[in-house]
Design a protein around this nucleic acid. Structure first.
Length: 581
RNA sequence: CGGGGCGUAGCGCAGCCCGGUAGCGCGCCUGCUUUGGGAGCAGGAUGUCGGAGGUUCAAAUCCUCUCGCCCCGACCA
């Protein structure tokens, strides 16, 4: 079977005149991002409420294409498809504690009997419940279930169209294994499947080490589509293999220390200079010679975090080190009551009650500048140990471009990415909370070792647009394009119309998906809509060309055109399509 | 939730400051002409000016409240 064959749902209307494809000539005011703008303009999606969209026929076809690839690869990897409900009862979520922990992102409601429900933002609880009810024996394992389904997360701020919706389509899979080894194997299978899926979708992407966030678990990778508009920052080694989300990327302690002799601590006036930039400019030093002191509240205690002036605190790392579930910067108005100086002048010297944690980079510094805990004053030539106590040194900052790779395989660079997939090793977090056990070969009760694996299907569509577009519109990769070919008869003349109809039939019979622009519109309108909608190939039939016995084929991606005779069209397109897939 | 902005025809916008009963472009409908990169002419339809209340002889315009949306931030897949 040829792989570009028409997708397996009924293709009844492929004529533009009979399909709702409300293209927009102008940019809609609500859209900022490329994918959002172009998908609205191409008539693929329409907004219903903030972060909630209707997929119009063209948009839906793209989703179906992606879903089809996902299904094929999930099935190939041995996962079985099922479908869980959108609504789930609070009891399941209370069992794992996530009813409280998940926060406002979980959209809750009551049924007519006043029972608590939520719209599923993910389905660990539901699937684990299924597992514990239905699976008894190790003989039934390993298992891997997946579904492609609508998820709802009540995002604080939905944005960018399909990139960050509240309602979105996700493929989620959950594996249950007898032991850690089996779980690792399933994890690897999913990791490999994800690589295949995104490659088949025609995306430029990179798997990176990631934080586990609200889902929890022991290790995870994110699949990032590389695009400047991405919301995530990744660091990677160009020379080596290391790649990670900045949230996650480890930073090695510097091996060289500033060996300068310790000079005497001195207070200097820094009137009105609060920010790193203001202070360093005023004192004519670089941010690398200054240490920032940030006060955080964990709900239980206040801690001071010290990082070098040009570094950013990584709150995830701080949380992990402290074992805290909450971590918030102390509100600026509360700072004076804690240390006697306003924000901008906080420093570690003389901090009594507050625990002081410092990033490794600080350990390597000498004679640096810190706030003096007194308004309009900083200390110069501060040195840790001599001038203040550090309770613990640790990796507490975000990795940056220029840092050495933690694998020692080169220097890190940064890039922006869109997270389209995420695989997690969950371990027994959920099976333990929900008592999902099975009997092993010795008749002993064991906890299932789980993994979970998500792909943002609708986000993948948007990510593809972010990566493949030009000023005219979208350039869909062949495997996920809503149609392979847009057929553009440029006039209503009898020979043109007749040839269009013939070729439309010929191509469809060969399994090539054709969108026939049969509207009685000007050539310019059709060309522009075709470019906007972005099918990879355009077939143009005009009176002039036809007089020479020729039609024109255009490649949307490169803009190249090729004149062929009508009877060469099928062979040409078939060969293009088979090499493109 | 904090900061900024916007809701006027299907879409993009003007009008609001300075109150006098709504306009432009595109699209849409009809007809004729046109037809290889968003046609021309002629005619036509379309608005509870986001909603509620108030001030006023009179409110799109001023005031109060409210709802929705967009952008930045905190948060997050």
């Amino acid at each position: 079977m040829e792989r570009y064959r028409a997708i397996d749902f009924p293709l009844i209307r492929m004529r533009v005149s009979q399909t709702l494809i409300p293209t927009l000539r102008e940019d809609p005011g609500e859209a900022e991002t490329v994918s959002h703008r172009l998908m609205l303009r191409a008539g693929m999606i329409r907004k219903v409420a903030a972060g909630i969209y209707t997929y119009l026929p063209l948009g839906l076809r793209v989703l179906r294409k992606i879903e089809r690839i996902v299904r094929e690869e999930m099935n190939r990897a041995g996962a079985q498809e099922l479908l869980m409900p959108v609504a789930s009862p609070a009891e399941l979520w209370r069992e794992t504690g996530r009813w409280d922990f998940y926060g406002k992102e979980l959209l809750r409601f009551k049924d007519r009997h006043e029972r608590d429900f939520c719209l599923g933002p993910t389905h660990e609880e539901v699937i684990t419940d299924l597992f514990r009810r239905e699976v008894r024996s190790y003989r039934q394992m390993p298992l891997n279930f997946y579904q492609i389904q609508t998820k709802f997360r009540d995002e604080i701020r939905p944005r960018f169209g399909l990139m960050r919706g509240r309602e979105f389509i996700m493929k989620d899979a959950y594996s249950f294994d007898r032991d850690e080894t089996g779980a690792r194997l399933n994890y690897q299978k999913m990791y490999d499947a994800y690589n295949r899926i995104f490659r088949r979708c025609g995306l430029t992407f990179r798997p990176v080490e990631a934080d586990t966030g609200l889902i929890g678990g022991t290790s995870s990778h994110e699949f990032m589509v590389l695009a400047d508009t991405g919301e995530e920052t990744i660091v990677y080694s160009e020379e080596g293999t290391y790649a990670a989300n900045v949230e996650r990327a480890e930073v090695l302690p510097p091996d060289a220390c500033d060996g300068d002799e310790h000079r005497p601590l001195a207070a200097v006036p820094t009137p009105g200079r609060r920010t790193v930039e203001e202070v360093t400019t005023f004192l004519k030093i670089t941010p690398r010679q200054l240490v920032k002191t940030l006060l955080y509240d964990t709900g239980k205690e206040t801690v001071a975090i010290l990082v070098r002036g040009d570094h950013d605190v990584n709150e995830i790392k701080v949380k992990r080190l402290l074992g805290a579930t909450e971590l918030e910067l102390v509100k600026p108005e509360l700072v004076p009551s804690l240390i006697g100086a306003p924000v901008g002048y906080v420093g570690p010297v003389g901090l009594k009650q507050i625990r002081i944690l410092a990033d490794w980079a600080v350990k390597a510094m000498a004679n640096f500048v810190v706030g003096a805990n007194q308004a309009d004053t900083h200390f110069v030539n501060a040195n840790w140990e001599r001038d203040f106590r550090v309770d613990q040194f640790a990796d507490l900052r975000n990795a940056q471009a220029g840092d050495p790779s933690p694998r020692k395989d080169g220097v890190l660079k940064t890039a922006k990415g869109i997270e389209v997939g995420h695989v997690f090793m969950l371990g027994t977090k959920y099976s333990q909370a929900m008592k999902a056990t099975f009997l092993d070969a010795q008749g002993q009760e064991q906890l299932a070792v789980m993994g979970c694996y998500g792909i943002g299907v609708s986000r993948t569509a948007a990510a593809s647009v972010e990566q493949n577009h030009d000023a005219k519109g979208i350039k869909w990769p062949v495997p996920i394009a809503p149609f392979h070919v847009t057929l553009l008869p440029l006039s209503q003349s009898q020979p043109v119309t007749q040839l269009a109809e013939t070729l439309y039939g010929t191509l469809q019979d060969a399994g090539i998906e054709v969108l026939w622009d049969d509207r009685d519109d000007r050539a310019g309108v059709k060309f522009n809509d075709a470019d906007l909608i972005g099918a990879p190939y355009h077939l143009v039939i005009g009176d002039k060309g036809l007089a020479q016995g020729q039609v024109e084929l255009k490649l949307r991606h490169t803009g190249e055109t090729k004149k062929v005779t009508p009877d060469q069209v099928l062979a040409t397109l078939s060969s293009w399509l088979s090499t493109a897939v």
